[in-house]
């Protein structure tokens, strides 16, 4: 293998961004991924295991790992932590009762050493549902201000149904990761 091809390969890899999507079951992770990939969202079953989607976003290749959030499979999340550049935490903003669970699981996740370098995007999903909490309110419930100051994070309201907010969120995430990792690009 010549030097040139090695360099080319490294360059190519550099444009890859690995994103891990997690959150409680029913928060809308799979629907969001399908929506940003322009796929049909009318029949989505709860995720038993995980899905991976590879898509091109601006000049980057995003590898999006969508892992099931049902209680019994949350223990598998840790299998996906390695090499995660961006973490997307999806919240069902209409599920008021489980916000405590949601906060607890997020807090646990952020304690994870292997995720300490990754940018965090919180998607306050289901904004289309009347009665949903706003992203600001979700931010307060999750007590985001108290987060470790070295963490790059952002919270954006969105709806996987209307598509609203998704681009804004992923734009921020990709820019943040790119500027952190590929400064010389």
């Amino acid at each position: 293998m010549g030097l040139l091809s090695i360099i080319r390969k490294i360059k190519r890899k550099e444009k890859e961004i690995r994103i891990l999507m997690v959150g409680l079951d029913n928060s809308g992770k799979t629907t969001i991924v399908l929506r940003i990939n322009g796929e049909d969202t009318s029949v989505v079953s709860p995720t038993l295991g995980f899905n991976i989607k590879t898509l091109t976003y601006q000049k980057y290749t995003l590898n999006i790992w969508d892992v099931g959030g049902q209680k019994t499979i949350r223990s598998y999340w840790r299998n996906y932590f390695e090499q995660t550049d961006g973490l997307v935490w999806v919240v069902d903003s209409s599920d008021l009762r489980r916000l405590d669970d949601c906060k607890m699981e997020l807090d646990n996740l952020l304690k994870e050493e292997r995720l300490s370098g990754s940018s965090l995007l919180i998607l306050a999903n289901k904004q289309d549902i009347k009665g949903s909490l706003t992203p600001e309110e979700i931010g307060k419930v999750l007590n985001l201000e108290a987060m470790d100051r070295t963490r790059h994070w952002n919270i954006v309201g969105c709806s996987a149904y209307t598509g609203e907010g998704l681009l804004e969120g992923f734009d921020w995430l990709v820019q943040d990761i790119a500027s952190r990792i590929y400064v010389l690009d």
């Binding site: 008021l96 916000l99 909490l133 419930v141 108290a146």
Partner: peptide, 9 residues
Amino acid sequence: KSGFRVPAS
């Protein structure tokens, strides 16, 4: 929780 009261649905 953190000074925010979740409204009832």
